[in-house]
Design a protein around this nucleic acid. Structure first.
Length: 561
RNA sequence: GUCCCAGUAGCUCAGCUGGAUAGAGCAUCGCCCUUCUAAGGCGAGAGUCCGGGGUUCGAAUCCCUGCUGGGACGCCA
């Protein structure tokens, strides 16, 4: 739509001898569809009054023999705005073209992109802190895949950190006389043991040291500890998968930090030859300062003075591994914004040492806060488990009204997903947001269930149509809806380009509001056949759009609600 | 201390690659169900866009500065 209008406007500019690429934007003036503000720019370049230029353009435009095909009305407003009201014909023709197009009219991309999201720790249950990376990461994954890219998602498990030593310490002390092979325990046991030992470590320096020792040996591939480690991983991953499955969050690879450890030897050997790698206070560091830095970026430490490896090493090792396994065009990290400094260091280290020269993107999201606007904690001070959050939302929704109690479980789960995901994705992810269980479960207003409700209600109105859209537009809200549907392509393009799922969520909400208005002003059942036919075609497409966009956000539509 | 992010209606937030009268949801108040789901729609009130400068024909948006809140700053992950 915009392109078509821009083309005809640019043609006009040319005949007036203005050398300028003009842009058309959506107008927020009542009754005006689009506006062009470039008379002001031209005024500066050609030293004329903007109003004169705008009038010149509009007059010339009106001489165009195709004027009526494109426009219902074009006029100039006060200082020099060009207001455009498009013809019904243009709207309908563009809409017809869009309906024929594959993938909602978007341009295809073909990059190979690795996405790093999830990042749960083995031996700890998933909690609220794991929610955003999963939901945002999966949404970005879906969007980029829809754009045609080959995406590779990797959960990047924290499978070999300090918590492993602590859990193994706990197991050894709970099963003192058993061979490691024979020790058996379940998830409940793990869920108790980790916090228990973690607490002990805070009180007792000696136990902490012993745990650290186990961790170190494990990292150095101690065969015995690996037996227990394997058991813990298997149990824990199974549980983590269960929750991710519920949230429809999926990964192509379940690699962990331990998988990067395999490459440390060859990577360190490679790095030792680089001039930017040096020893500082006994630690091996990569200098990542750049001349135009506003602040001093500390060097990236890749090996501690005691020889141990740390966070940056494993992230660098992971880049090494990804380059080797996938050789992607880009790697996207969907992680807590507070890690921005760390990733600046790692990204720079990777570039400087030539480990990877592709694009590295940091998508840092804000924290989920409690009502005190501080990172969310339960009443007892711990992190709320994701499983409990899901339960709470479900309960809240079921108790909302009597009809919900008889809902099918399958449908309920879809709605719970919609509630949680839409709440998270409707705002720009770079910002913190306040986590309010009541607001999460709210069904009125800007929520997932509102969108689902709209979709389901429209599906019930749909009847047969002959697939041939006429040239008519019947009323203002009809027109608004058609124009809104024409925006879908650019919305997806923007969401993909900026990696911002909330653009899609906002569009879905705006579209749903228009839909609700539409079917309350236009009673389908009492309409003439030809109007009903047109509306059916439009609403059918409308629902196709809603369904596809919801899918991109990881939200699925229940059978009924 | 340095740097990053934020400050928009009572509350939660969109808008931020500059455009006309700053938009939603919740809350408040009015109207709309003999007709496809009222879990809805329409409308009203509510604003020094944190303060102060500047750039511009035009600033919530860009620059400088001050205040407030959150965060990050070499051997944790």
């Amino acid at each position: 739509m915009n392109t078509k209008l821009e083309n005809i406007l640019n043609e006009t500019l040319k005949t007036l001898n203005y050398d300028y690429e003009t842009k058309i934007v959506k107008s927020n003036i009542d009754g005006v569809d689009f506006q062009c503000d470039d008379a002001f720019k031209l005024a500066k370049i050609y030293h004329k009054a903007p109003f004169i230029i705008a009038e010149e353009i509009v007059n010339k435009l009106k001489e165009n023999k195709n004027f009526k095909e494109y426009f219902k009305e074009v006029n100039v407003a006060k200082p020099g705005f060009i207001n455009i009201i498009t013809s019904d014909k243009l709207i309908n023709n563009t809409l017809k073209e869009l309906m024929k197009k594959d993938k909602l009219g978007i341009k295809r991309e073909n990059n190979k992109i690795v996405l790093d999201y999830g990042g749960p720790n083995i031996a700890k249950p998933l909690h609220v802190g794991h929610l955003r990376t999963a939901i945002i990461g999966q949404a970005i994954n879906n969007i980029l895949k829809f754009k045609g890219n080959t995406t590779i998602s990797d959960v990047h498990l924290g499978d070999i950190g300090a918590q492993m030593g602590q859990v193994i310490y706990g197991i050894i002390h709970d099963f003192p006389n058993k061979k490691y092979e024979d020790i058996e325990f379940d998830l409940d046991y793990l869920n108790v043991t980790y916090p228990k030992i973690s607490g002990l470590c805070k009180e007792n320096e000696k136990i902490k040291e012993q745990c650290a020792e186990i961790t170190k040996k494990l990292q150095n591939k101690d065969k015995n500890y690996q037996i227990l480690w394997k058991k813990i991983c298997d149990l824990s991953i199974k549980d983590i998968k269960r929750i991710y499955d519920y949230l429809d969050v999926h990964f192509d690879y379940w690699y962990g930090e331990s998988d990067a450890y395999k490459y440390f030897d060859e990577m360190m050997e490679y790095l030792d030859k680089k001039s930017c790698v040096k020893i500082d206070d006994g630690a091996k560091v990569i200098d990542v300062k750049e001349d135009d830095d506003k602040i001093e970026i500390p060097p990236c430490i890749i090996q501690k003075s005691d020889g141990a490896y740390l966070y940056a090493t494993s992230d660098l090792g992971t880049i090494w591994q990804r380059k080797k396994d996938f050789n992607p065009d880009e790697i996207i990290y969907v992680v807590d914004a507070r890690q921005s400094m760390h990733f600046t260091q790692v990204f720079r280290a990777s570039k400087k040492t030539n480990i990877y020269n592709g694009k590295l993107t940091f998508c840092g999201y804000g924290t989920v806060n409690g009502e005190d606007n501080k990172p969310f904690k339960t009443r007892t001070g711990g992190a709320l488990k994701l499983e409990d959050l899901i339960k709470e939302v479900k309960e809240e929704f079921v108790n909302l009204r009597e009809e919900n109690k008889s809902m099918q479980d399958e449908d309920l789960d879809k709605i719970v997903n919609a509630i949680i995901k839409f709440a998270d994705l409707q705002n720009d992810y770079t910002k913190n947001y306040i986590f309010d269980i009541k607001k999460f479960s709210e069904v009125n207003g800007k929520t997932g269930p509102y969108i689902l409700y709209t979709y389901l209600r429209i599906s019930k109105l749909l009847t047969q149509n002959n697939g041939k859209l006429s040239e008519n537009i019947y009323n203002e809200i009809d027109r608004t809806l058609r124009l809104k549907l024409l925006e879908v392509t650019s919305i997806i393009e923007a969401a993909a380009k900026e990696r911002k799922p909330h653009l899609i969520a906002n569009y879905l909400y705006e579209l749903s509001v228009i839909d609700n208005n539409f079917y309350q002003t236009n009673h389908m059942s009492s309409l003439e056949e030809n109007i009903k036919n047109d509306y059916n075609i439009i609403l059918e497409y409308n629902n196709l759009v809603i369904k596809k966009l919801l899918e991109l956000l990881g939200i699925h539509i229940p059978k009924a609600m």
